[in-house]
Protein backbone atom coordinates (compact mmCIF):
# COMPACT_ATOMS: atom_id res chain seq x y z
CA UNK A 1 0.00 0.00 0.00
CA UNK A 2 1.11 3.51 -0.74
CA UNK A 3 -0.87 4.81 2.17
CA UNK A 4 1.75 3.96 4.78
CA UNK A 5 3.92 6.91 5.64
CA UNK A 6 3.06 9.95 3.62
CA UNK A 7 -0.65 10.14 4.27
CA UNK A 8 -0.22 13.54 5.92
CA UNK A 9 0.73 15.07 2.60
CA UNK A 10 -2.58 14.18 1.00
CA UNK A 11 -5.57 16.56 1.05
CA UNK A 12 -7.71 16.54 4.16
CA UNK A 13 -11.20 15.05 3.85
CA UNK A 14 -12.39 16.00 7.29
CA UNK A 15 -11.05 18.71 9.54
CA UNK A 16 -12.25 19.68 12.98
CA UNK A 17 -11.01 22.76 14.78
CA UNK A 18 -11.37 23.67 18.42
CA UNK A 19 -13.90 20.99 19.32
CA UNK A 20 -15.02 21.30 22.95
CA UNK A 21 -17.70 19.60 24.95
CA UNK A 22 -18.70 20.71 28.42
CA UNK A 23 -21.14 18.90 30.66
CA UNK A 24 -22.07 21.63 33.10
CA UNK A 25 -18.78 22.50 34.75
CA UNK A 26 -17.05 19.35 33.58
CA UNK A 27 -14.88 19.66 30.49
CA UNK A 28 -15.03 16.36 28.59
CA UNK A 29 -13.26 17.68 25.52
CA UNK A 30 -11.07 20.78 25.43
CA UNK A 31 -10.24 22.55 22.16
CA UNK A 32 -9.30 19.47 20.13
CA UNK A 33 -8.19 19.71 16.49
CA UNK A 34 -8.32 16.83 14.09
CA UNK A 35 -7.56 16.33 10.44
CA UNK A 36 -8.21 13.21 8.46
CA UNK A 37 -6.47 12.81 5.12
CA UNK A 38 -7.66 11.08 1.99
CA UNK A 39 -7.32 7.30 2.24
CA UNK A 40 -5.68 7.02 5.64
CA UNK A 41 -6.54 5.20 8.82
CA UNK A 42 -6.24 7.58 11.75
CA UNK A 43 -6.10 6.02 15.19
CA UNK A 44 -7.46 7.83 18.23
CA UNK A 45 -5.96 6.52 21.46
CA UNK A 46 -6.15 7.51 25.09
CA UNK A 47 -6.97 6.19 28.53
CA UNK A 48 -10.53 5.75 29.77
CA UNK A 49 -12.13 9.17 30.14
CA UNK A 50 -9.67 10.80 27.74
CA UNK A 51 -12.58 11.95 25.56
CA UNK A 52 -12.24 9.59 22.60
CA UNK A 53 -15.90 8.62 22.38
CA UNK A 54 -16.98 12.19 23.13
CA UNK A 55 -14.85 13.40 20.23
CA UNK A 56 -16.38 11.10 17.65
CA UNK A 57 -19.88 11.61 19.00
CA UNK A 58 -19.41 15.36 18.66
CA UNK A 59 -18.03 14.88 15.13
CA UNK A 60 -21.00 12.78 14.03
CA UNK A 61 -23.75 14.82 15.65
CA UNK A 62 -24.69 12.13 18.17
CA UNK A 63 -24.13 14.73 20.89
CA UNK A 64 -24.10 18.50 20.48
CA UNK A 65 -20.70 20.14 20.78
CA UNK A 66 -20.15 23.18 22.99
CA UNK A 67 -17.90 24.81 20.41
CA UNK A 68 -15.85 23.98 17.34
CA UNK A 69 -15.98 23.88 13.58
CA UNK A 70 -16.14 20.87 11.27
CA UNK A 71 -14.92 21.21 7.70
CA UNK A 72 -15.58 18.73 4.96
CA UNK A 73 -13.29 19.02 1.91
CA UNK A 74 -12.33 22.41 3.26
CA UNK A 75 -15.91 23.63 3.46
CA UNK A 76 -17.47 24.34 6.83
CA UNK A 77 -20.31 21.87 7.38
CA UNK A 78 -23.05 21.95 9.98
CA UNK A 79 -23.38 18.52 11.58
CA UNK A 80 -26.02 18.56 14.30
CA UNK A 81 -27.52 15.09 14.04
CA UNK A 82 -26.53 11.58 12.93
CA UNK A 83 -28.53 12.21 9.75
CA UNK A 84 -26.44 15.28 8.92
CA UNK A 85 -23.29 13.22 9.25
CA UNK A 86 -24.69 10.50 7.02
CA UNK A 87 -25.74 13.07 4.44
CA UNK A 88 -22.17 14.38 4.42
CA UNK A 89 -20.88 10.86 3.72
CA UNK A 90 -19.70 9.95 7.21
CA UNK A 91 -20.67 6.50 8.41
CA UNK A 92 -20.15 5.58 12.05
CA UNK A 93 -19.96 2.25 13.87
CA UNK A 94 -20.64 2.88 17.55
CA UNK A 95 -19.41 0.48 20.16
CA UNK A 96 -22.30 -1.71 21.43
CA UNK A 97 -24.69 0.35 19.34
CA UNK A 98 -24.05 -1.07 15.91
CA UNK A 99 -26.93 -3.49 15.35
CA UNK A 100 -30.41 -4.12 16.71
CA UNK A 101 -30.46 -7.69 18.05
CA UNK A 102 -34.10 -8.30 17.33
CA UNK A 103 -34.14 -7.60 13.60
CA UNK A 104 -32.63 -9.41 10.63
CA UNK A 105 -29.23 -8.71 9.09
CA UNK A 106 -30.96 -7.27 6.01
CA UNK A 107 -33.04 -4.87 8.05
CA UNK A 108 -30.05 -3.90 10.15
CA UNK A 109 -27.91 -3.03 7.14
CA UNK A 110 -30.66 -0.90 5.63
CA UNK A 111 -32.06 0.50 8.89
CA UNK A 112 -32.86 4.18 8.34
CA UNK A 113 -32.17 3.86 4.61
CA UNK A 114 -34.56 1.16 3.50
CA UNK A 115 -35.12 0.77 -0.23
CA UNK A 116 -38.78 1.08 -1.16
CA UNK A 117 -40.38 -0.27 -4.30
CA UNK A 118 -40.24 1.88 -7.35
CA UNK A 119 -44.00 1.88 -7.91
CA UNK A 120 -47.18 3.22 -6.31
CA UNK A 121 -46.91 0.75 -3.42
CA UNK A 122 -43.51 2.12 -2.58
CA UNK A 123 -44.39 5.74 -3.07
CA UNK A 124 -47.72 5.70 -1.24
CA UNK A 125 -47.21 3.07 1.43
CA UNK A 126 -43.45 2.74 1.74
CA UNK A 127 -43.56 -0.92 0.73
CA UNK A 128 -40.02 -2.27 0.89
CA UNK A 129 -38.12 -3.70 -2.06
CA UNK A 130 -36.69 -6.82 -0.43
CA UNK A 131 -35.37 -8.20 -3.71
CA UNK A 132 -33.24 -5.15 -4.35
CA UNK A 133 -31.94 -4.97 -0.76
CA UNK A 134 -31.20 -8.69 -0.91
CA UNK A 135 -29.17 -8.33 -4.10
CA UNK A 136 -27.20 -5.35 -2.80
CA UNK A 137 -26.33 -7.08 0.46
CA UNK A 138 -25.18 -10.27 -1.25
CA UNK A 139 -22.97 -8.37 -3.64
CA UNK A 140 -21.57 -6.29 -0.74
CA UNK A 141 -20.83 -9.34 1.40
CA UNK A 142 -19.32 -11.06 -1.62
CA UNK A 143 -17.07 -8.07 -2.32
CA UNK A 144 -15.85 -7.88 1.27
CA UNK A 145 -15.75 -11.64 1.78
CA UNK A 146 -18.15 -11.46 4.71
CA UNK A 147 -19.69 -14.86 5.26
CA UNK A 148 -23.26 -14.54 6.47
CA UNK A 149 -25.43 -17.26 4.99
CA UNK A 150 -28.85 -16.40 6.27
CA UNK A 151 -29.33 -12.65 5.96
CA UNK A 152 -32.93 -12.97 7.18
CA UNK A 153 -31.80 -14.25 10.58
CA UNK A 154 -32.03 -11.92 13.57
CA UNK A 155 -28.70 -10.26 14.35
CA UNK A 156 -28.52 -11.87 17.81
CA UNK A 157 -28.03 -15.28 16.19
CA UNK A 158 -24.54 -14.32 15.00
CA UNK A 159 -21.17 -14.19 16.71
CA UNK A 160 -19.49 -10.94 17.75
CA UNK A 161 -17.11 -11.12 14.80
CA UNK A 162 -19.87 -11.63 12.29
CA UNK A 163 -21.89 -8.80 13.78
CA UNK A 164 -18.90 -6.48 13.59
CA UNK A 165 -18.31 -7.56 9.99
CA UNK A 166 -21.89 -6.62 9.17
CA UNK A 167 -21.51 -3.25 10.89
CA UNK A 168 -18.27 -2.53 9.02
CA UNK A 169 -19.85 -3.57 5.72
CA UNK A 170 -22.50 -0.95 6.33
CA UNK A 171 -19.83 1.75 6.19
CA UNK A 172 -18.77 0.53 2.75
CA UNK A 173 -22.33 0.46 1.48
CA UNK A 174 -23.28 3.92 2.71
CA UNK A 175 -20.15 5.80 3.74
CA UNK A 176 -19.19 7.86 0.76
CA UNK A 177 -16.08 9.41 2.30
CA UNK A 178 -15.41 8.68 5.95
CA UNK A 179 -15.87 5.73 8.29
CA UNK A 180 -15.62 6.33 12.03
CA UNK A 181 -15.16 3.24 14.17
CA UNK A 182 -15.43 3.14 17.96
CA UNK A 183 -13.32 0.22 19.18
CA UNK A 184 -14.22 -2.20 16.39
CA UNK A 185 -12.52 -5.11 18.16
CA UNK A 186 -13.59 -4.40 21.74
CA UNK A 187 -15.67 -7.53 22.28
CA UNK A 188 -13.86 -9.85 19.90
CA UNK A 189 -11.48 -12.77 20.31
CA UNK A 190 -8.04 -12.87 18.71
CA UNK A 191 -9.03 -14.54 15.46
CA UNK A 192 -12.15 -12.43 15.06
CA UNK A 193 -10.16 -9.26 15.83
CA UNK A 194 -7.81 -10.02 12.98
CA UNK A 195 -10.71 -10.58 10.61
CA UNK A 196 -12.28 -7.29 11.67
CA UNK A 197 -9.01 -5.38 11.31
CA UNK A 198 -8.37 -6.83 7.86
CA UNK A 199 -11.81 -5.58 6.96
CA UNK A 200 -10.94 -2.15 8.37
CA UNK A 201 -7.84 -2.10 6.17
CA UNK A 202 -9.93 -2.99 3.13
CA UNK A 203 -12.20 -0.01 3.78
CA UNK A 204 -9.41 2.12 2.32
CA UNK A 205 -9.61 0.18 -0.92
CA UNK A 206 -13.23 1.16 -1.15
CA UNK A 207 -12.45 4.85 -1.08
CA UNK A 208 -13.00 5.47 2.62
CA UNK A 209 -10.84 7.40 5.04
CA UNK A 210 -11.06 5.90 8.52
CA UNK A 211 -10.98 7.26 12.06
CA UNK A 212 -10.66 4.45 14.57
CA UNK A 213 -10.73 4.54 18.35
CA UNK A 214 -8.74 1.68 19.82
CA UNK A 215 -7.03 0.46 22.98
CA UNK A 216 -4.92 -2.04 21.12
CA UNK A 217 -1.42 -0.68 20.39
CA UNK A 218 -0.66 -3.57 18.03
CA UNK A 219 -3.62 -2.56 15.91
CA UNK A 220 -2.36 1.02 15.83
CA UNK A 221 1.11 -0.07 14.73
CA UNK A 222 -0.03 -2.67 12.21
CA UNK A 223 -3.08 -1.10 10.64
CA UNK A 224 -3.02 2.67 11.03
CA UNK A 225 -1.18 5.50 9.27
CA UNK A 226 -1.31 8.19 11.92
CA UNK A 227 -2.28 8.27 15.54
CA UNK A 228 -3.64 11.03 17.77
CA UNK A 229 -3.37 10.79 21.53
CA UNK A 230 -5.93 12.29 23.90
CA UNK A 231 -5.45 12.75 27.64
CA UNK A 232 -8.09 14.16 30.00
CA UNK A 233 -10.00 15.80 27.15
CA UNK A 234 -6.94 17.41 25.54
CA UNK A 235 -5.05 16.51 22.39
CA UNK A 236 -1.49 15.75 23.51
CA UNK A 237 0.16 14.42 20.35
CA UNK A 238 -0.30 13.50 16.69
CA UNK A 239 2.30 11.16 15.20
CA UNK A 240 3.02 9.23 12.06
CA UNK A 241 2.77 5.60 13.06
CA UNK A 242 6.12 4.76 11.42
CA UNK A 243 7.78 7.24 13.82
CA UNK A 244 6.53 5.68 17.04
CA UNK A 245 6.63 2.41 18.90
CA UNK A 246 4.29 0.90 21.48
CA UNK A 247 6.23 2.18 24.50
CA UNK A 248 6.21 5.76 23.22
CA UNK A 249 2.47 5.58 22.66
CA UNK A 250 1.79 4.19 26.11
CA UNK A 251 4.00 6.93 27.54
CA UNK A 252 2.01 9.59 25.72
CA UNK A 253 -1.28 8.08 26.83
CA UNK A 254 -0.33 7.92 30.49
CA UNK A 255 1.57 11.19 30.50
CA UNK A 256 4.93 9.58 31.32
CA UNK A 257 6.38 10.89 28.05
CA UNK A 258 5.98 14.58 27.33
CA UNK A 259 4.75 15.32 23.84
CA UNK A 260 7.16 17.05 21.49
CA UNK A 261 6.42 18.29 17.99
CA UNK A 262 3.27 16.94 16.41
CA UNK A 263 3.30 15.29 13.02
Amino acid sequence: MTSQGDSASRPAVLEAQGISKHYGGIVALDDVDLSLHEGEVLAVVGDNGAGKSTLIKALTGAISKTSGVVKFDGVETQIDSPSDAKAAGIETVYQDLALVNEISITKNVFLGREIVRDDWLGRWFGVLDFKKMDTEIRSLFGKLDVRIADIYREAEAFSGGQRQAVALSKTVMFGKRVAILDEPTAALGVRESKMAMDLVRSLKDHGLSVIMITHNMQHVLNYCDRVMVLRLGKLVAVRNVKDVDGDTLVGLITGATEAGAAA
Partner: peptide, 24 residues
Protein backbone atom coordinates in the same frame (compact mmCIF):
# COMPACT_ATOMS: atom_id res chain seq x y z
CA UNK B 1 -43.55 -6.85 7.74
CA UNK B 2 -43.61 -5.15 4.35
CA UNK B 3 -43.48 -1.40 4.91
CA UNK B 4 -40.71 0.93 5.95
CA UNK B 5 -42.61 2.54 8.84
CA UNK B 6 -43.92 -0.82 10.10
CA UNK B 7 -40.61 -2.65 9.99
CA UNK B 8 -38.94 0.22 11.86
CA UNK B 9 -41.25 -0.49 14.83
CA UNK B 10 -39.16 -3.61 15.56
CA UNK B 11 -35.92 -1.64 15.40
CA UNK B 12 -37.21 1.14 17.64
CA UNK B 13 -38.64 -1.34 20.13
CA UNK B 14 -35.50 -3.46 20.01
CA UNK B 15 -32.96 -0.69 20.52
CA UNK B 16 -34.15 2.88 20.26
CA UNK B 17 -30.65 4.36 20.44
CA UNK B 18 -29.32 2.25 17.56
CA UNK B 19 -32.38 3.21 15.52
CA UNK B 20 -31.77 6.88 16.25
CA UNK B 21 -28.09 6.66 15.38
CA UNK B 22 -29.02 4.86 12.16
CA UNK B 23 -31.03 7.88 11.10
CA UNK B 24 -34.54 6.60 11.89
Amino acid sequence: TKTRLGSRAFAIGGNEEVARLSGV
